[in-house]
């Protein structure tokens, strides 16, 4: 499969198959992380994080792949592992070629947002996901979540969003 096809999969609904294909590169990443003072679990985390970044990047409208996809993914992994080592105060020096991932402050903010959302409760998260990610209508959400009316669902969604916003605000304040 060509890189473009794979990217198209990531962009469209077939994310999962695309990801499964990308998992082929995991042993290589694991080997890299292990060689550079990490464990399999850390490699796993790094790989997942990198897949997230890749997904975000490929979903940006202006995304152009400059290297092959696996090189790109591998670079993200290297970059992430370097960041992790620096965070752990264990970074020595490895002069791999790193892709420029641009400004990473976005990354950090998204990470906080993710944290904020994971604390709104399962039901809330389900409602928010249904609306914002799966683009279900309020009516569909009401029946999915077994709420009486569309209006109730709408109110619920609003309350959940408020909760998430409060969480996010708190997190941003505490980290800055």
């Amino acid at each position: 499969m060509k890189d473009e096809d794979l990217i198209n999969r990531l962009k469209t609904g077939k994310v999962q198959q695309g990801l499964a294909q990308l998992y082929r590169y995991f042993p290589k990443v694991r080997q890299f992380v292990k060689r550079n003072g990490g464990t399999s679990e850390q490699a796993n985390d790094i790989f997942q994080e990198s897949l997230l970044v890749l997904l975000e990047k490929t979903n940006q409208p202006d995304f152009i792949l400059t290297a092959s996809l696996d090189t790109y993914l591998f670079s993200i992994c290297k970059y992430k592992w370097k960041a992790e080592l620096i965070k752990l105060n264990r970074y020595v020096n490895f002069d791999y070629e790193l892709v420029d991932l641009g400004d990473t402050s976005d990354e950090k903010r998204y990470h906080l947002a993710e944290q904020a959302l994971s604390n709104v409760g399962e039901r809330c998260l389900e409602i928010l996901k249904s609306f914002y990610v799966l683009h279900l209508s309020m009516q569909e959400i009401a029946s999915k979540m077994q709420l009486k009316t569309e209006e109730v669902a709408k109110n619920q969604k609003y309350r959940c969003l408020e909760k998430a916003r409060q969480n996010y605000l708190k997190l941003t304040i505490s980290t800055n």
Partner: peptide, 23 residues
């Protein structure tokens, strides 16, 4: 915008988990 990105990440993570299982 950040929160929507966060939601996307959460949704992606589910995919990643499934993909890993598949792999």
């Amino acid at each position: 915008q950040d929160l929507l990105m966060g939601l996307n990440r959460i949704a992606f993570k589910v995919h990643i988990k499934k993909a890993k299982q598949y792999y």
